[in-house]
C-alpha cells in the first residue's frame, strides 16, 4: 500500500527530525526508509546539517545590566503608565 516517493519522503525529513510526525505519516516514512538506502543517507545528512547549524550558532551573552534596566523601565511604567517608549 505504501508508495511514498523519495521526493515526498525528503519533504518530511525535517519534521521527522523535529519529532513532529506521528501516526500514518510517520509510519509511511519509516516504511520508505526501510526500503530506500539513498533516503537514509539523505536523512542522515539532514540530521548532520541540523546539528552542525545548531553547534555553530553558539550563545549570545546577555549585555551586562540588562535585567536591571528592564526592571527599572517596568517600575517606571508602573508608576507613570504610558511614559515608556513604544508605538
Amino acid at each position: 500500500m505504501n508508495r511514498m516517493s523519495c521526493e515526498q519522503a525528503m519533504r518530511q525529513f525535517y519534521a521527522y527530525l523535529d519529532h513532529a510526525l506521528s501516526g500514518e505519516r510517520l509510519a509511511e516514512l519509516n516504511d520508505h526508509l526501510k526500503a530506500c538506502l539513498d533516503c537514509c543517507d539523505k536523512l542522515q545528512f539532514s540530521r548532520q546539517l541540523d546539528g552542525f547549524v545548531k553547534s555553530r550558532l553558539g550563545d549570545e551573552p546577555l549585555p551586562e545590566g540588562i535585567e536591571a534596566r528592564i526592571r527599572k523601565e517596568l517600575a517606571s511604567e508602573a508608576s507613570f503608565p504610558g511614559n515608556g517608549k513604544k508605538e
Binding site: E60, I66, G84
Partner: peptide, 18 residues
Amino acid sequence: DATAAEDLVQETYLKAFQ
C-alpha cells in the same frame, strides 16, 4: 546587533507589561 537587540527586548517587555 547587540544594542538594537537589547532595545527590542526592552520594548518587548514594556509592551508585554502593558
